[in-house]
């Protein structure tokens, strides 16, 4: 594996068993090979149900492949214990979701602090970093607000600040502008691009051509297979 690769998928299959008796088999990914380089911006596109989110979950060590290998910084994640996977997710990966997924009972500031709490960062350092990130996403004034008191765009900005809390190497965003109007979406996109410019590898699942336009590489996926990879 090349030094510059942060995460690589080799012949990855992911099969889900659904239904009450888990008899229904869903092949979410079917033999995917992919490498994501450090600092690159990759846009993953494809119809819904094509396996985009599954791909993101595997790259983010949230899940293990049914077959094949996912190598995160060269380490086969299937061989890692849950605590080691949690550590990778905590230190090296940042997630941004379509539906923001902030903790409803924590303030904006506390939501940004959360990954650092799990990492055991001392409170003073944590607060400094969380405030810095909130100011970067333009929400310094809203740090005490609960998610329910924030607009969708503001919530997503908090989510980006949270994703960047532990200075990850890889930012994974699943339709980050999907629930936002185009103007707000642009703001979010510029924050993601800014992180990428600072060296964070970004993988974005999107239907939005504007988002895709920021990426250096496009990947099209259909029925669990990569059907097209385009360097822009």
């Amino acid at each position: 594996m090349k030094d510059g690769v942060i995460v690589a998928l080799e012949g990855v299959w992911k099969v889900y068993r659904m239904g009450r008796r888990r008899r229904i088999e869903v092949q979410a990914l079917r033999g995917v090979d992919l490498e994501v380089a450090r600092g690159e911006f990759l846009a993953v596109m494809g119809p819904s149900g094509s396996g985009k989110s599954t791909l993101l979950h595997l790259m983010g060590c949230l899940d293990r492949p049914t077959e094949g290998r996912v190598l995160f910084e060269g380490e086969d994640i299937a061989r890692l214990r849950p605590a080691a996977l949690a550590r990778i997710r905590n230190r090296k990966v940042g997630f941004v979701f379509q539906s923001f997924n902030l903790s409803p009972n924590l303030s904006a500031l506390e939501n940004v602090e959360l990954p650092m709490v799990f990492a055991g960062v001392p409170r003073r350092e944590r607060l400094r970093r969380a405030r810095e990130l909130l100011s970067r996403v333009g929400l310094s004034e809203r740090e005490r607000h609960l998610p329910s008191e924030l607009s969708g765009g503001e919530q997503q900005r908090v989510a980006i600040a949270r994703a960047l809390a532990n200075s990850p190497e890889l930012l994974l965003a699943d339709e980050p502008t999907g629930n936002l109007d185009s103007e707000t979406g642009k703001g979010i996109l510029s924050l993601i691009s800014e992180a990428n410019r600072e060296g964070v590898a970004v993988v974005v699942v999107t239907h939005d051509p504007e988002v895709a336009a920021c990426a250096g590489r496009h990947l099209r996926i259909r029925d669990g297979r990569i059907v097209e990879v385009t360097d822009v």
Binding site: G60, L62, P82, A83, A86, R87, R89, N90, R91, G94, F95, F97, N101, L102, S103, P104, L114, P115, F118, A119, R162, A163, A165, N166
Partner: peptide, 12 residues
């Protein structure tokens, strides 16, 4: 929320 906590790195 538990899923999100795990995604941001909470150990079991």
């Amino acid at each position: 929320e538990i899923g999100v906590m795990k995604a941001v790195g909470a150990r079991n």
